[in-house]
Amino acid sequence: MKVFGFNFGARKSSSADTAKERLQILLAHERGSGAPGPDYLPLLQRDILEAIARHVKVDRDAVDIRMERDADLSSLEINIELPKRAAAR
């Protein structure tokens, strides 16, 4: 709260604040309304691979999925290594 330029209640953010923030982000994802079920990622991976395999021959091992959950948005990064000569089917 800022009154007359003084910042009351301002303090160095403590480790407990960090804990709260981390938990809020995590729990919002774990129980949030509209959040996908916890086990959707393997299914998503399978669907993506199937879609790609309809066009290009890919190796299951060449798929790398990374996730970064954050307060306002999460990102899902999917890297697929295509074969040297991406042979169309």
Binding site: R22, I25, L26, P42, I65, M67, E68, R69, D70
Partner: peptide
């Protein structure tokens, strides 16, 4: 914890 995608059981 924010980066968990797959787990041991998967």
């Amino acid at each position: 914890e924010r980066r968990v995608v797959f787990d041991f059981i998967n």
